[in-house]
Amino acid sequence: MRRYVRIFREFFRACFVEELEYRSEFLGNLISSFFGIGIAVLTVNIFFYQTDQLGGWTYADVLVLLGVFNTLRGMIDFALRPNMPRLLEHVRRGTLDYILTKPVDSMFYVSFRHLVFWRLIDVLLGIGVIGYGLIKKHYIPSLVDVIVFIVTIAASFVLIYSLWMLLMTTSFWVIRIDDLSFIFDSFFETARFPVGMYRGWVRIVLTYVLPAAVITNMPALSLLGKWNMATALIAALLALVFLWLARRFWRFALRFYTSASS
């Protein structure tokens, strides 16, 4: 475990150096991150000119939710988005060969080799918005709230990672699924708002079939002290089950790796 932390740090360092090669990106990223969160907060404000509740959530609640959404998206853009689509390239071009000869877990390597650390700005901004929402709400989360929040947001991240990994692992057979990340984008966008806002079958689908809404709603509710131990545990368990499945599937898929010819 310590070893993997060290390797992760080294990946981070290499990516940092790599990104600094293109220094001008820093400013662009900073501006776009601030702009993105600014627009999002503004949108929420516009909603609340008309009403003082959104699917049972008050203005401050929705801000916390927005913060959670931004934090989670920042984490995804930091670690997952740079890596998941690349797996396809590795298989297609045969560079997976090098990864498989390295004495690290190959799934770890393909998942975290590339990190876009600018996106950590989004994580920080997200945490900022969460803090702002909590101040507006005049609520100080207890230690348990924070622990449940960390567990549920980690579960959400692991769940997204596992699902994405499962999907990308199919590239061992289907080498031409061109960038499936857009599916994730549209799916994940629904997580921006309270589930209660959606009606009818959309709500059912977003709760049970594609639990995008749950992924952000649950951590937000935890932080607001409205958590439910049972659901939190189920979420954590579900995340672990999917992680296990993704791992099994990866090991299985490696047997079918045929490698690109040189």
Binding site: E18, D97, Y98, T101
Partner: peptide, 14 residues
């Protein structure tokens, strides 16, 4: 160790 003349393991930009 494996070296393939047609595939690179070096990081391109750094």
């Amino acid at each position: 160790s494996l070296v393939m003349g047609q595939k690179s393991q070096l990081i391109w930009d750094i």
